[in-house]
Design a protein around this nucleic acid. Structure first.
Lengths: 234, 234
DNA sequence: CCAGCAGGGTGGTCGGACCACTATGCGTCC
DNA sequence: GGACGCATAGTGGTCCGACCACCCTGCTGG
């Protein structure tokens, strides 16, 4: 009826992945909607349940589908966070020169995001920034500092009003990534400098000064970037 | 011996994914190296081959592993291109306001990349840019124009010297993404304007003028961004 | 009226079988 | 002796059928 007898390109699993992606792309599957059961889907595409499961698993790790045990398979909201979660994998598996490249990208995006945030940030958001800033300065526990550091930048990225950019920056600041790079950096007594830089960023945000915010954020990330570049050098 | 009897968190497949990712992260699996067979891997982790296959499939779509039928499973070179291929999926499945967000990110990255390229581009690379520019102006076939347009920007991104950024821009300019957005834009007789903008970018590159290049690239992407924003508006 | 339980339906896992493809080595033929 | 070609073992790819773990609904009983 509708099995189309496709031209047999690639593996059946790959074809199944494309078919489902196409269904979503064409709007035949709406975000949040529930898909037919694995068994039905397999039957519809004329493949085995095993192959269909692999296709579903693939789309699951991409953040497109979500499988709920005992309930069914659903299309995610297809929001930036869902789809860009895999961005963290890149950061986690990168080393050497590519870490510098990732930091360079983060510097570019973070400085722009901070500039946008300076223009758009609300009072509530600014208060939250201050909360994390204070918490960061009130403790010496590296774990806690790192957590508030991440939150500090996340609030700023959100305030910039570009959810996609916030999600990418989230990936570029993933826990393991930060742990690997920041640890060595902070061990060199960079606490004081970091606090100064965070304060400068906050000052620019409070003053709603985009250019100052851009410069402060670029300098903040740039410091780490330079340090890492030196580490990898001779 | 080494099955560890893990604390049973999450699905078996999910744990297998993490285990393999960890092996690579710890350096126990080098890029290009061949993994044990599916059957052996499944036995090592004490799971069925089906579950192991799902884990492998997941890491395959993430660009971490590569399965060659009849030969074996290999770790990819873990280069930016391998890992960021999935970025195209985001672009393909995004619509509405998120398309604008993606274009905004592209504008930020592309303008910076073009500025860097202006400072670093070699004679050979500049010649290639000119080749695609000429080819773009010599035809009226939209397909061919699109192909050379993509190549034009790819050469520039490569010349910027940040492979990761080039890979991200590649994803943000994926064929289907461009087709969806550019088509409507070009239909409004924007050919002439596009050619003028491309010429301006090339002029700045040839003059090795980063600031001019940044401005030209930002304007180029910004034009489309503005158009799309207007389309989605009222 | 509500709480608790039982059933059906769903994804998750398993084991085994067979197919399709690749690579290797041995034998044959020039 | 060397090059070619074929047989073969080993690998990923696909399929099947069964069972388990979990969620949800509806019925039952208080």
């Amino acid at each position: 009826m509708d099995d189309e007898t496709a031209p047999q390109k690639g593996t059946v699993t790959q074809r199944a992945i494309e078919r489902i992606k196409a269904m979503i792309g064409e709007g035949r599957l709406e975000p949040g909607q529930r898909l037919p059961t694995e068994r039905d889907l397999a039957a519809q595409l004329g493949i085995s349940r095993s192959s269909m499961r692999e296709a579903i698993r693939a789309l699951t790790v991409l953040g497109v589908l979500e499988a709920r045990h005992g309930s069914g398979i659903y299309v995610t909201q297809l929001e930036a966070g869902d789809l860009l979660e895999t961005f963290g994998v890149v950061a986690d598996l990168s080393r050497g020169p590519r870490l510098v490249e990732l930091l360079e990208i983060r510097r570019i995006l973070e400085s722009t995001a901070t500039a946008l945030a300076a223009a758009r940030i609300t009072g509530d958001q600014l208060a939250e920034v201050e909360k994390h800033l204070a918490a960061m300065n009130a403790t010496d526990d590296p774990e806690e500092i790192l957590a508030h550091d991440l939150a500090f930048h996340r609030v700023i990225a959100t305030a910039a009003g570009n959810e996609t950019m916030a999600a990418i920056l989230e990936g570029l600041s993933s826990r393991t990534f930060r742990a690997r790079v920041w640890r060595g950096y902070q061990e060199e007594g960079a606490f004081a400098r970091t606090r100064r830089e965070h304060a400068a960023i906050h000052r620019a945000l409070a003053a709603h000064d985009p250019e100052a915010a851009r410069a402060a954020a670029a300098a903040h990330v740039g410091e780490v970037e330079m340090w890492l570049r030196a580490q990898l050098g001779p």
